[in-house]
Amino acid sequence: MKVGLFIPCYIDQFYPKVAVATLELLEKLGCEVVFPLNQTCCGQPMANSGFASLSEGCDKNFVANFGEVDHIVSPSGSCVLHVKEHLHDQDEIKAAYIRKHIYELTEFIVDVLKVENITASFPHKVGMHISCHGQRGLNLSSMSELSAPSFSKPAYLLNMVKGLQLSEPKRVDECCGFGGTFCVFEEAVSVKMGKDRITEHAVNEVEYITGGDVSCLMHLEGILKRQGSKVKTIHIAEILNSD
């Protein structure tokens, strides 16, 4: 199975270790992974700021890079959701194929690879941060607002990891306050939301906060570091890839 690895721009630039973990994990699980070298960004930062009209170049570039693979996989629910909902191109057949065959990492492992065992070990107390776009947009886990059965694809995988003790914050799926450019244009509320998530995880005495979106984790990490906290953030791919 040929998998095109889509690494969002800020992961490429700031968190290459998350991309490495994603690549290695997919290879361990038997995928043939390619990383198209000319990829840049899905266009979400512009679109969420109201400039979807400027994302044409990004869209074109995205289709040029990912038009030839069976599946596209990315360690970011938010970027995947953006592509799923908004990718369009002159070559609409390819764009439609991509929209249908792009997956967030845990969704791909659970739904497409149907993995039942993960041979990772991570003997730590870990708190789960649910990122909104993955959850409410991609349906990676059940939502607290709805009257529906409970499930979680990321937690299903984390529970296979040896030694890992998983906990949930009291408000299980409240937003962390990153929100793209919201994090700077609504700085006060953004930081307050992040602090409140951290407080709830701290009650559970976690060593790590994990999640499926680096953007949320980057925001939480920034606050944790400023607070001088010992709690670290780690992307779910890094845990699932740990020996």
Binding site: N48, C132, R136, G137, E174, C175, G179, F182, E186, V189
Partner: peptide
């Protein structure tokens, strides 16, 4: 419309 993280709740 910008006073939101688009969390969807």
């Amino acid at each position: 419309p910008f006073a939101s993280t688009l969390c969807g709740s």
